[in-house]
Amino acid sequence: MEAMAYRASTRTRIGYILDRETWLGPVMLFPAVLYILVLVGLPFLLAILYSLSDITVGDPSLDFVGLQTIQEVVENPVFQKSLRNTFVFTLVSQALVLVLGKILALALSTEFRGKWIFRFLILLPWTTPIALATISWLWMLDSVFSPIDWMLRAMNLLGPGAPLGPAKNLYWLGKPELAFFSVILVHTWRMLPLATVIMVAGLTSIPQDIKDAVAVDGASFWRALFEITIPLMLPIMAVATLFGVIFTFTDMIVIYVLTRGGPIDTTQVLSTWAFFKGIEGGNLAQGAATALFLFPVLLGVAVLILRFARRAEVA
């Protein structure tokens, strides 16, 4: 009897400790803090140190050279092209994602037969590992066996005497403009599901009464879309876009698998250029310096996300 009472009281004592937020909070935060320090903070500091040195795989001593490495990196024309490409790929693909995602979200917010399979197909790209998905795109865009080319040929759009040229293939990844287009296409395809799902959530959060009021007030589809729906969804659309920006801006898998930066570095981006320079080329200092250029943009985007997320909560 006494033993039981004692056990019960220890259990409540442990319960009290577990209930104390001043104690429980730091304990639960600890793994996350450790993770960020070791796997984010430490490499970040290391990258800054490397970029101020002339370290290579062959000569792994940290000799401080000031801004010389950074200057060398910036003056390289391939770096300049990579920097521009990174922005263009991100902005163009995210603009497309925004428009297409909005259209898909509007379509998914209405009721129709077979909606579930439609939704399933839209979500599918997000569930595939990005490397595998890009490999299948690599086959789709193959310079000889591309099924897209095959279909174009079957429709008499491609081949001798056809509007798209006398060649039997388009060489999607072989010509600079088409390679550029292909990369944007894959990035858009990749980010569309997440953006759509976020925007469907945003659409359904608009109260039915507001939608009814718009109908009674007599707004046309476009007026309702641009004056009511989009303004009300703006915070959540911003969050969707900023997520897409982070994913696309930092991604190297699509370029690495699809074009390896080619042809002749026309599709090179910062992450692939940093990888080729630093890891494959062994110039750790230049690789680190290149990668550091991602930082200011990501910082800005992160600040914006946090701000918009708070505004979305208020609304």
Binding site: D209, D212, A213, V216, G218, A219, I228, P231, L232, A315
Partner: peptide
């Protein structure tokens, strides 16, 4: 609804939260 010459006041009022009162009435 817009062709029926009706106007409706909803239980929740359904005012457009991102518009001023003026723009709500003018919509």
């Amino acid at each position: 609804p817009r062709a029926r010459k009706i106007a409706m006041v909803f239980q929740s009022y359904a005012l457009y939260p991102h518009m001023t009162v003026f723009n709500n009435i003018a919509f």
